[in-house]
Amino acid sequence: MNILLSLIILLFCGVCDDVRQDVAYITDSGHVEFTSRVPLHTFTGSSDHLHGLIDFDENLVDFYLDLSTLKSGIGRRDRDIYRTLNVDDYPFAEFTGTLSTSFDQNSSETQQVEVQGEFTIHGVTRNVTIQGTMQKQGEELYLTAEWILNLEDYDIEPPGILFYRVNEEQELRIEATLNSAPKEEI
């Protein structure tokens, strides 16, 4: 009986595989931007090396960024940022989670979405919920999201400039166009 049940389950899994889409959406050139504030001064850093994967079948949303690709326009400040984030030991900022709202893949309208999962930076992982938008554009998926990252939550000491400290709250924004690709090629 148990063998029969197992076979049914296996068969069910196989059927599920058959009805799954064989594509996922992927990028290696997403845009990330952060805004830091100190009294009387604001600076922005960015990277165009955001890697991302969205697989609707597996309900998987997976993004990561090599933090050493962040540039703020001043090389010396970039190196300060890398030291603050301890990039040598923790080179990536990562998010792995799931879509917690539905997304209509047959619509080309911009849709509000929400993802839930684990965000890791500086070796510290927190559960987060992030709101954003997604829009299907032919074979592409356009995604935007914004949220606030609190440095203290991730044991990151805000760097100081003389008597000032960088605000603990960093405004993060991502923007990416993900292309459909056969899963076996990912």
Binding site: N2, I9, L53, L60, D62, Y64, D66, P91, F92, T96
Partner: peptide, 27 residues
């Protein structure tokens, strides 16, 4: 039966974990 179901879940979990992007340094 429980072991079989657990094993299948494990297979699916591993498959799901493998679906994550491999982390690669830019430089």
């Amino acid at each position: 039966f429980g072991f079989t179901v657990f094993f299948l879940h494990l297979v699916l979990l591993v498959e799901s974990m493998n679906a994550q992007l491999p982390r690669e340094r830019a430089d």
